[in-house]
Amino acid sequence: MARFLLRRLLVALLVAATVMTVSFLLTRLSGDLAISIAGPNATQQDVELVRRAYGLDRPLWLQYLDWVARALQGDLGESYFFKDRVANLIAERLPITMSLGLVGLCIALAVALPLGILAAVRENTWVDRAVMLVALIGQAMPSFWLGLILMIVLGLRLGWLPISGTGSWQHYVMPGIVLAFSAIPSLMRLTRAGMIDALASDYIRTARAKGLSRLSILVKHALRNAAIPVVSIAAVQLGFMLGGSIVIETVFALHGVGFLAWESISKNDFPVVQAVVLVLALIYVGLTLLADLLNAALDPRLRAA
């Protein structure tokens, strides 16, 4: 168990280091960052000034080491556009993105678990096929398009929810639904497959033979075993959702980290972009580590390994 955890932790740290390098190189690969920052109307002199002011005249490896050393102390640099510390900007917006991700995950689980169980219990009937059809439709739905449709229907026609912006909890409902759509198909398929396996196993036959109620067999015996992979995939899905929230936050003008990244990309504000890539990737690394831990905690067989 301890060896398993140590190995996972080591891999996570290595991935984090790789991600740091990637997010640094990402903003340098276009060639001259100073030209991008100075803008299209800048003279050669302006570009030189920008280059020196932002320390872009130093060799690449020195810039990299400097950035890493500062980032390790929590200093992600200064935004060119917002004239604020990048760490502050992200700390301000991260709760919004996190709430959105959690709302999305809760909606996804609330839909995927019951439907997945239902499909497994009624395997190979029309109920099962209807559920799988829902999964197919969810997979094929472009998220930004679904967002726009919800805006027209729920926002404009029915007037139930605000169309866009940040503020009350209502602003999270539509983006949450859209975000959930991306995670529902895989969670549902996984729940269904896990439940079908569990329901066919010997301990379920034993439980039935003992005369336990159907509900208690489903929830206490089958679901417990089927839920192990679902829980760990849910943690990973949350990571994907946070990474994908940039599209949805932009559609709904929800001012989270994704929206910040989009704004910064269009304004050539690269310290911010670089930092958002890093932070989202690190959160993903953390969540996969959490998934492994959850897996080990839920499944005693893994602990022995």
Binding site: V19, V22, T27, S36, G243, G244, I246, V277, Y284, T288
Partner: peptide, 19 residues
Amino acid sequence: TARLSIPVVLVALTVAGLM
């Protein structure tokens, strides 16, 4: 593992914004 931890849309947007 490293590739999966990098957010695709964000990276694609960044590269497109720069280049």
